[in-house]
Design a protein around this nucleic acid. Structure first.
Lengths: 136, 136
DNA sequence: ATACTTTTGCAACTGAGTTTCATTTATGAG
DNA sequence: CTCATAAATGAAACTCAGTTGCAAAAGTAT
């Protein structure tokens, strides 16, 4: 699906900045931080615009946050059908100690966990660290 | 075990600041951020000292990082025997959406996950979000 | 083409965390 | 106990991530 349709389907206006950010996400197969995006887009868009684009994409379910032990937040495209109502990403994230990239293992589901009595689970987030297939 | 022995066992000098930080960790049963520690200790110690204490505790295996989707890092005491050589914390972390606290579920282990061919796992980190026993 | 709403750029700001360096403190040897 | 040494602390200044307010620009529906 092209960028224009993705934006329209999620109720976002079709602007150059959003188009540009989507293109960068499509170009890489691992999670990107604001500064990764900025490196590629700073000639064209302001850094604040990139922050705001990340927020609207998160909000509308176009990207999801990839939790990682690094300082700065990273994001990746949602594979499943997500919307602003609900994110459906229930896959494992893998961070490579060699190349430093974090990727979505879209086909590896997070198993359900038995929590102690009295606890209610709404979502879970599993980060595995190690060496990725490209670096191994 | 008292604070003085904990410090000595991990090869750290027995200072007031470290004593104070340990006391705060013992006082709460959930993970603390630098600013949580600072709130309790700012009258006595400089904020930079608190940062450095966190680093040496992390390094020596007295505390471990609790990964969380919030901006600031949180830390909790290691239950298992950890050293600077190796951390042995393999338990689940739980973040409550109501009170905002993150705690260690020390008795809930992270299950081992089958990753795709070519990937090597060295450690994993599982964060569950929901409502904790106290808030439920 | 117009009117209205959303998005953008810019400047200024906040908050987390780090670095440098001079001073103070803990500790082990004599 | 005293002293020398190495480690820890405080203070100021700094970097980097992220946010806010506002005026100008661009998208969209009519």
């Amino acid at each position: 699906m092209d960028a224009e349709n993705i934006l329209a389907e999620h109720g976002l206006r079709n602007t150059e900045a959003r188009h540009g950010v989507l293109d960068v996400f499509n170009k890489y197969d691992y999670a990107l931080s604001h500064s990764d995006l900025e490196k590629e887009l700073q000639k064209y868009f302001d850094r604040v615009t990139i922050y705001r684009t990340i927020h609207s994409f998160l909000d509308k379910g176009i990207i999801h946050k990839v939790i990682d032990d690094s300082e700065s937040a990273k994001y990746a495209l949602c594979a499943d059908e997500c919307s602003s109502d609900r994110h459906h990403d229930n896959h494992v994230h893998f961070k490579c100690a060699k190349c430093g990239n974090s990727e979505c293992l879209n086909h590896v589901q997070i198993p359900s966990i038995n929590v102690p009595k009295g606890y209610l689970v709404s979502e879970s987030n599993l980060l595995i660290e190690g060496v990725c297939a490209s670096c191994n």
